[in-house]
């Protein structure tokens, strides 16, 4: 019995390291090998009971339009590839039911399918809409972000690394400056 407990204990300890370890490994690999896209983005300031404060990003390019329904339905798995527009921001290029040949695709789920005119708008979830921040900075970051959103001359986007179906949010940039730097500057010399 004791031997069995030891084996189970060993397996448990391994699993408790391997599962989070795999999460780290996957994220690091995507950051290193993935393709980086700029996603135009508006934040709010909710918080998570376990993981603390974060700002939520609202993306514009989270749908793709088809002339045929192609049997897309809510909750279904969808594989999306992206390309850049003339300003260098990411736009969805193609969507697949199966895993595509290309390495830089995103694996996600359909949020809803909307039919209008002769088109089907398939909206999907972009699973990188949270930027975790230090507790004291989250609401400040939100303010900075909202100011940037109201001013159409300012460019606000998220840097996202995509590879092998997964995505990792690298940073949020406002006028070519990371949001962390802007907050740090604000903290140094408050207006």
């Amino acid at each position: 019995m004791k031997k069995f407990i030891f084996i189970l204990f060993g397996v448990m300890c391994l699993a408790q390291w391997i599962v989070p370890g795999k999460m780290i490994y996957d994220s690091e690999r995507i950051l290193e090998e993935g393709t980086v896209y700029k996603f135009k983005t508006a934040p709010i300031d909710p918080s998570d009971p376990f993981r603390g404060k974060y700002i939520t990003l609202n993306f514009e390019q989270n749908f793709i339009t088809f002339t045929d329904s192609l049997e897309w339905s809510t909750g279904q798995e969808i594989f999306v590839t992206f390309t850049g527009d003339s300003a260098g921001y990411a736009v969805p290029e193609r969507a697949f039911h199966e895993q595509p040949q290309s390495k830089t695709y995103l694996r996600t789920n359909v949020e809803y399918v909307n039919y209008y005119g002769d088109n089907y708008k398939v909206q999907f979830r972009l699973p990188f809409d949270r930027l975790y921040l230090e507790e004291s900075k989250a609401s400040e970051a939100e303010k900075v972000y909202w100011q940037a959103q109201q001013d159409s001359a300012q460019a606000t986007y998220a840097l996202v690394s995509i590879g092998d179906g997964q995505a990792v949010l690298k940073d949020v940039i406002i006028n070519d400056k990371p949001i962390h730097d802007i907050i740090n500057e604000l903290n140094k010399d408050p207006e």
Partner: peptide, 16 residues
């Protein structure tokens, strides 16, 4: 402790 280890990864890599 398990919750803590998963949470910290979510924070560091902004995993939603």
């Amino acid at each position: 402790a398990i919750a803590i280890s998963i949470s910290i990864i979510s924070q560091v890599y902004h995993i939603e």
